[in-house]
């Protein structure tokens, strides 16, 4: 599943609305609980594990991509 689809599923929006810059500022429903759901879904989908700091800091689609890139996960 695409990263954008994961984020869109959790937020309940269309994947078209999700950009690389998308962050909690753009979606009121992107609260701390939704953010953890996004991170846990990314972990399940790409077989990676986030450190607590990474969980808390990766607060945009781009930042999530950076973590995945650092961990050597192939994503689209």
């Amino acid at each position: 599943m695409k990263l954008r689809q994961i984020v869109a599923n959790v937020l309940g929006v269309s994947p078209d609305e999700i950009r690389k810059s998308s962050s909690p500022r753009d979606f009121p429903q992107w609260d701390s609980a939704a953010h953890i759901d996004i991170v846990l879904s990314v972990e399940a989908e790409y077989g990676v594990s986030f450190r607590p700091e990474e969980m808390m800091d990766a607060l945009s689609v781009g930042a999530l991509e950076d973590v995945l890139r650092r961990k050597g996960a192939a994503f689209e």
């Binding site: 599943m1 994961i6 599923n9 959790v10 953890i36 759901d37 879904s41 399940a44 989908e45």
Partner: peptide
């Protein structure tokens, strides 16, 4: 369902 929060949200 895939055991992931996003799948359950959908």
């Amino acid at each position: 369902l895939s055991p992931s929060p996003s799948a359950y949200h959908a």
